[in-house]
Amino acid sequence: MLKKKMIKNFTWPLKVATHGVESTRLYPEVMMELPAAERGIHELDATTCIGCGSCARVCPNSCIEMVPYKYGNPLKNKKMQFPQIDYGRCMFCGLCVDECPVECLKMGKNVVMTGWEREDIVKGPGDIAARKHSAKEVAEFEAEAKRIAAEKAAAKKAAAKEGAAKKAPAKAAGEKAPKKAEGANDKSKNGGAS
């Protein structure tokens, strides 16, 4: 009986060894595979964020602050305020993501975060913005933004000259925030309009 048990005790580790169980992870060299649902560092689609601040209000730890950021879409986000997240406080609960009305805030698979200072893990919209356009698209957006700005300027001039002489066929959002639109003119990598 005892012999049988002893044999079993020897076969046990052998069995484990041949089970093909991944027991050691080669972490820094090989990142483990993360699922699609992973709640890692946020990814902001600055081109669609409307700056409503819902994410900042729902955050249990108040780690989201709305800060100005240049490379958003002024047609949608009039105040050009985008979320900045303090990862020193964030607990990756995902409530902000659920709350976003236009689904522009996501949580990605990036879970690595390092820094020497506390400020290093306070990530502004520029750090978490994930949407990137190709150079061609950026040029197109710039042209578009320029055109809108020009139209607006023309409309303004015309309006200044005579009350209702000429109606600029401007887009709906061209009425207000003309100055912000110029901001989007800058070498925007995240695009102006969508």
Binding site: L34, P35, A36, A37, E38, R39, M91, F92, C93, G94, L95, D98, M107
Partner: peptide, 27 residues
């Protein structure tokens, strides 16, 4: 844990259940 993570997106602190439902569907 990996199985749970593939559903909830977190390893330990899941914040997964919501009033009247759940946060994510099964992959």
């Amino acid at each position: 844990i990996s199985l749970i993570e593939s559903v909830t997106g977190a390893r330990l602190t899941h914040s997964f259940v919501r009033f009247g439902g759940v946060r994510n569907d099964l992959p």
